[in-house]
Design a protein around this nucleic acid. Sequence first.
DNA 1: TGTTAACAGTTGATTTTGTAACTAACAACG
DNA 2: CGTTGTTAGTTACAAAATCAACTGTTAACA
Lengths: 146, 146
Amino acid sequence: MSIADDFDLQNFLPYLLNQAAEESSLRFQQVYKDRYGMLRTEWRVLFHLGIYGKMTAKEIGERSKMHKTKISRAVAKLAERRFLTRQRDGADRRLEYLELTEAGRRAYRDLRQVAMEYDSALAARFSDADMATLRRMLRALASGAA
Amino acid sequence: MSIADDFDLQNFLPYLLNQAAEESSLRFQQVYKDRYGMLRTEWRVLFHLGIYGKMTAKEIGERSKMHKTKISRAVAKLAERRFLTRQRDGADRRLEYLELTEAGRRAYRDLRQVAMEYDSALAARFSDADMATLRRMLRALASGAA
DNA sequence: TGTTAACAGTTGATTTTGTAACTAACAACG
DNA sequence: CGTTGTTAGTTACAAAATCAACTGTTAACA
């Protein structure tokens, strides 16, 4: 009954995805952690602002699917370190526009460079066709559309 | 500089993998959480024992790459709920063999069924060839071998 | 208007994780 | 033996994530 069960954990997609995600995040994590003392939520916010420009916490939440409390705390940390500035919307004073400072942009560019090189190193292990398939499937899985 | 940056977060593999892993874990998480009040570490330990049979915490750690403190706590929880028993090795009294109880096996079989159906549902969205490619690539990424 | 609901974002309490130090047991080698 | 090092597993404390309740604001509409 227990020995040689036919179910294979290594092929269970959610498990396999988690293992791959964790392993592939390790080295990048070392960089943003050691070099900037950031958490995962913080580099994600930094990247959203670096890539898409000025936006509100709500928009970051919609794009990243991170919970608003995580974003709120990450934003507070980044603001404290002078990596971003906040400006209230004049018309709707609930909204706050977030924008990277020059220091924030420098950190973003630095980490983006690391990310791109790391991504290339990962991709180099597979054929272009396989990588295209992988990315397409991961996007489909991430979008969750049944 | 910030608007229309050419780096695409959605194609950064570690990020994409995390998004896919999180999204694809959601529904299964609901089941083991709602039905058994388990955490991710707990169902993983349960599955390791269900699939491979009696083994020590150390072996679970080697197979799952989970840190030993996580395993220790998960084992304590599962033992408290009478899902597993612990027996000290007679020769080397540091080792403790873990084995599912009948209640533990019932929970495992129940969750395994859910996992298999869920995995099939996910796989049904893609061709067999693509799924084979995906699994092969994820295993390679998870193994971390450069 | 006035009242109620909805929304953006924050804070506090609780839970879970991560790190380091610890206990108990075995091993290696003088 | 006896000292030193290693190992399996636990515990204590700090860091972080989660969940619920909160503030301040806008919207809806009687």
